[in-house]
Amino acid sequence: MNIRDRACLYLSVAPLIAYILVFTFVPVLCGVWLGFAGKFSGAFPSWENYRYIVSHFQFRSALLNTLIITGVGLFLELVAGFFLAFLLTKKFKLKGFVRALVLLPLGIPTIVSAATMRSVFDTQGYLNEFLYRAQLIRVAVDWGDGGMKTLFAVVVSDMWKVTPLVMLILLAGLESIPGELYEAARVDGASALGTLRHITIPLLKPFIVMALVVRGIDAFRLFELPLALAGRGSPVLSTYAYFEYMDYNNPNTAAAAASILFAIILLCVVLVVKTTTRKVLGGK
């Protein structure tokens, strides 16, 4: 490749890289800077905003809610996604139809699913109606009034929307495992559980890690669903940052909260990638 061609290639990439730097990395750095700029004292750097939010009851509950929603949600989505992927490795009539059906929630806009889930989890909503019919409750449950119930509503709504994505990743993994391995395990008299533990899960591991990272990042950043279903009563970090900015007109504390969220995401991704790659290397 001559120098002119090479220059052309660099020129073709430059606008995109410039865009990503100016509109993604610069705002993130600005956010970090805002978080360390004292609103009242004007000092920089200052821990003022961080001290304020850490002492704020709402922030502590937002932090806890974020961790619970992410942890519980990820676990349930992985289990359900694995189950769905496993179903779809079977051969049966209408398989193409079932696959299309299972993928349907991926096509529903998040704000629409949030609005619909609000009808489901309303006090006079459809989950309560179902529970009346099943004779599980006699008095309406108020799913939105805070605590574990509300977090449960957020997790279930998120699961409905994104389990298909987890399923797709795990299905690709399951389909990559050669059938002969199962055949050999069967011949050797392995139990179903043994096959799962010693063949499926180890070979699926890279795909599980991928699902964990891709979904984990999004679970930490959930915004529409907690905004619609939990509101100000049970904030998560992203909605807390939104309320601080829009309702209390305090960009500095909002930026500090968003920076903390980013730090948590970064920490988790590095942790997951580090531990899993070391294990893979150690195993080999």
């Binding site: 705002p27 990042i217 930490f220 950043r221 939104y242 909002a254 930026a255 969220l261």
Partner: peptide, 19 residues
């Protein structure tokens, strides 16, 4: 680089952009 941009919370980007 592209993957890293995915890790930034959108509320964290939207705030300085809106300012």
């Amino acid at each position: 680089l592209i993957f890293v941009t995915r890790m930034f919370p959108e509320v964290g980007i939207a705030l300085p952009v809106s300012v």
